[in-house]
Design a protein around this nucleic acid. Sequence first.
DNA 1: TTCTATCTATTCATATTTGTATGTCCAGGT
DNA 2: ACCTGGACATACAAATATGAATAGATAGAA
Lengths: 296, 296
Amino acid sequence: MDWKHIQFDWNHARAFLVVADEGSLSAAGRAMAISQPTLGRQITALESQLKVTLFERVGKGLTLTQSGLRLYEYVKKMADAANEFSLVAQGQSNEVSGDVCISLTELDAYFRFAPLISKFKEYAPNIRLEVQVSNDISDLKRREADVALRYQRPTQPDLITKKIGSEHAYLYGHQDYVKHFANKKPQDVSNLQLIGFDHSDQMKHYLMEMGFPARDDQFTVICKNQLVQLQMMLQGGALAFLPDHIAARFPELVPAFVESFKPIELDMWLVCHRELHTSRKVRLVFDFLSENLNIK
Amino acid sequence: MDWKHIQFDWNHARAFLVVADEGSLSAAGRAMAISQPTLGRQITALESQLKVTLFERVGKGLTLTQSGLRLYEYVKKMADAANEFSLVAQGQSNEVSGDVCISLTELDAYFRFAPLISKFKEYAPNIRLEVQVSNDISDLKRREADVALRYQRPTQPDLITKKIGSEHAYLYGHQDYVKHFANKKPQDVSNLQLIGFDHSDQMKHYLMEMGFPARDDQFTVICKNQLVQLQMMLQGGALAFLPDHIAARFPELVPAFVESFKPIELDMWLVCHRELHTSRKVRLVFDFLSENLNIK
DNA sequence: TTCTATCTATTCATATTTGTATGTCCAGGT
DNA sequence: ACCTGGACATACAAATATGAATAGATAGAA
């Protein structure tokens, strides 16, 4: 490796960047909490080392010369890399360590989060994650989880919520089963079998809204566990609601009654205590999930 | 702009890079001409600021930790940007100024170099270029030019030569003229008109090699100026040799006797005095041309 | 014009960083 | 077991960078 081209003082380069951005030595000094004479000297030193005039001293303030403007883009690149460096370093920090508990639905834990664990390990090796798999709307207030993924926006004012995506759910079934109703409307099918989520009438209400009043006896099975639901659906013989991106992983699953039903739109919300959001470790997990979880 | 993530000491980041690359504090110290204790302190300072252990102190030498390895790629990015910064700064330097004379053929000056002038102005605003347009093999020894583009490799040992590309030349003509000989062999055409380069027999020799002995009376015009040759060719009525990339700019020009002739392969050599190559300004021009001139 | 706010340049005491010299530790060869 | 070469750590003096205070300069407002 050849080091001679990186021998200049990198802090001077940083000073150059900030001064160029802020427009004056004084402003830059304020922005990065260092004195104006120091910045002035750093700029001068850089200029004399490079033998390039970076700024035009024109009365009040400094303006970039043509050369300075051209060089600016490279210190910008340096700063971008420095930024990433610092960000990643935060994740690697020994200080940011401990346990963080996150709450996910079965489908999200299985399909979305599981593939991310090695990435997370790299991102924050000192944080141990506890994953609470549940479809219940677990109470963040009771600290059952530090961060949770929800499909309804919580209303409590002491929670931080961030919409990280949205998805569509649809009535799916095994293709061998669905083809019996091809081109039929739900009203024309009397013996349609469904897998219910729980004993609430939410699913029935939705079907009724769509003009298909389902009877209780059509719910072959009631099961809260989405993964088990999915497995049963794959056996054929019944339909259930499933997010599109999950169904897409199984070629044998096809949507039923595409003509008659409109998809259910689900917004994904990442939720966290307002106070916990100031904790570095929780903040880190929150940011990681918000950036990586919505990838299909 | 938010500066808080670039507040760490950038020189420490540089120290980190070099130590990681060289494998030990002492080696890094030697490489960048600073003492081993200084480097040790810089690394320690960086580690304690980031709260990340970058190196494992294992007996002789240091090895990167997992975190250090991950962070390394970002300081590498910083260093790459720093490198570019330094390189561009050299071009902008007030020190690198003065006149540099380059020698190019008419075609290269017209088609290749002319589009580069604004880029060169940005690259080295303090250098004034003198462009010597000539097809003569001007003598670099007599300092008629500092840098020259040649199509034959000079043999003098005191010249620096660098192959910067290669191109194919072919017998071209206006499509209206060439179509008369479509699917014919050169031997079957008796009244073929050619544009000659000079009174030497080089072109005749080449044609003879290809099995087409050209007669003197077939050379309608002899003209050393390639641009004028080109213009005459565009009028139709005669064929001439032309590099492919030039011909490609004129849709009306098509190659003649594609079946019978094989293309002439021309290597492009950038040439410079060995001693001049140490001059910053000449070096800069040489590097600029070697990077930008071969673009078609 | 004159005043004022705000900028850059200079000065000097202080704080920090650096290098030299030296101590200590470890691995490999004799 | 001992020696040796090369590595990192430590101590202290010298070099360097920094900040507070201040002076000088400029643009804009009254």
